[in-house]
Design a protein around this nucleic acid. Structure first.
Ligand SMILES: [Mn+2]
Ligand SMILES: [Mn+2]
Ligand SMILES: [Zn+2]
Ligand SMILES: [Zn+2]
Lengths: 132, 132
DNA sequence: AGATTTGTCTTGACAATGTCTAAATCCATA
DNA sequence: TATGGATTTAGACATTGTCAAGACAAATCT
């Protein structure tokens, strides 16, 4: 679906700036920071401002097209994968990989009965195996 | 063990500032930010500077008496629990609770074979049940 | 068309977090 | 007590994120 259609679908006026942000951030698996988004979108749309990038990202989060994740020091990252899933962080490269929900089986014991869990994820760190 | 002994044990000169930081940060389960540490330590040691708090915390991390955790937006938190464990974040209060490693059973499927996992933790969010 | 309104964008100010440097201070030892 | 290395402090700086004011653009009305 086109960025324009996506934006109109949730009642956001499609502007060149917003279209550029959507085209990048809804089609990446790289878990970019706002600054990463700014950097990439400026190639398409050199005059876009930091505030517009933040405004658009926050709009997309509000409309549930995007989620924020607390996975990197110093900045939140944006994730177009809004299904339940886990994350693997490559400690060499810093790259963040999505891990499908089904790849891990989690069983909580009874000692957690005092916690009403509304969501959870596994955060793994290590090294992505090179080669095939 | 006294803060002085702990510091001397890992070759750090015990100073009043460092002792105050150690006394707070190695004896809390609250997962404080550097700023939280500064705020609390200033009660004991009113002239301590931000730089000294950061320096001491980073020293303690280097000496493995403390770990950093990426669990809150905008700041890292410090955790004196250096054993493997999980975390539960109360979305109402923002409080972070330690969950013992054994409280959760995790089984990774074969789809993770390309990832060399060096550590992992479950991050849960929800609400701590009130009452007993 | 010309004027008005509305929404969007940009700029720059601001606060918070974290690192770094230079200067002051402290302190263990001679 | 004098001295030199370690420690602390204050402030500068970079980065991240929010906000408000004004510039700008597009649609609406006369
Ligand atoms: Mn970047
Ligand atoms: Mn605080
Ligand atoms: Zn993801
Ligand atoms: Zn913990």
């Amino acid at each position: 679906m086109s960025a324009q259609a996506i934006l109109r679908n949730c009642g956001i006026q499609p502007t060149p700036q917003r279209i550029a942000v959507v085209n990048f951030v809804l089609n990446t698996t790289s878990h970019p920071s706002a600054d990463d988004v700014l950097e990439c979108v400026r190639k398409e749309c050199p005059t876009i401002s930091r505030a517009t990038v933040y405004n658009t990202l926050n709009l997309l989060v509000e409309k549930r097209l995007l989620r924020t994740q607390v996975l990197r020091e110093g900045t939140i990252v944006f994730d177009p994968n809004i299904e339940l899933h886990h994350h693997f962080i490559d400690e060499e490269s810093g790259k963040i990989y999505d891990i499908s929900w089904d790849a891990v089986q989690i069983t909580c014991g009874t000692s957690l009965r005092d916690f009403e869990i509304r969501e959870m994820q596994v955060v793994m760190k290590g090294r992505r195996r090179k080669g095939k």
